[in-house]
C-alpha cells in the first residue's frame, strides 16, 4: 500500500534527528558542568531529566510515528505510563531510607563516606595545623 505523503517525510525525520543530537549535547554539558552538578545539584538533575523526557517524546511521537496514529495510541500509552509512574511513585518512600534500617552488624561492615578522624583522642598530635576534611567533596 502506498504511504500517505501527508505524514512523515524525510525532512521531518532529519530535523528531529538534529534536535535529538542538540538535546544530547545539552544534557552532556549539564552533566559535565561543575556549577550545576555540585553547587546546584537538584537543578542539574531536573534539567537532565527534562531533556531526557523531551528526547523520549520526540522519539515516540516522530520516529515511532505515534503523532500520526489514530486514537488507539491512547489505549496503549496511557495505561503503560500510569503503571510506570505508579511504580516509581511507590518506590519514593524507600528512596534514601535504606541506610536507616541497617542492623548493627551491617553498620560495622558498611562503607564510610570519608575517613572519620584526623585526631586521635588518646594522644596530642604533633602537627600544628590539622587539615580539616574538605566539605566540597561531600555526598554526591
Amino acid at each position: 500500500m502506498a504511504h500517505d505523503p501527508g505524514h512523515g517525510g524525510l525532512r521531518k525525520y532529519l530535523i528531529v534527528g538534529i534536535l535529538l543530537a542538540i538535546l544530547t549535547a545539552i544534557s552532556f554539558a549539564t552533566g559535565s558542568s561543575q556549577m550545576l552538578m555540585h553547587d546546584a545539584k537538584h537543578l542539574g538533575w531536573t534539567i537532565m531529566m527534562a531533556v531526557s523526557c523531551c528526547k523520549a517524546l520526540l522519539v515516540m511521537l516522530f520516529f515511532m510515528h505515534l503523532i500520526w496514529e489514530a486514537n488507539w495510541k491512547y489505549v496503549l500509552t496511557i495505561p503503560a505510563s500510569i503503571m510506570s509512574m505508579f511504580l516509581l511513585l511507590m518506590l519514593v518512600p524507600d528512596i534514601g531510607y535504606r541506610y536507616r534500617s541497617y542492623s548493627e552488624e551491617r553498620l560495622l561492615h558498611a562503607a564510610d563516606a570519608r575517613i572519620r578522624a584526623t585526631h586521635s583522642p588518646l594522644e596530642e598530635t604533633t602537627s600544628q595545623e590539622a587539615e580539616p576534611p574538605s566539605s566540597s567533596d561531600a555526598e554526591h
Binding site: 535504606r98 541506610y99 562503607a111 564510610d112 563516606a113 554526591h140
Partner: peptide
Amino acid sequence: IGTFIVLRYGAPPGTW
C-alpha cells in the same frame, strides 16, 4: 531503573 534509584540513593550517604 526504579531499583537503581532506590539502591543508589539508599547507599550510605556520601559513599557512592
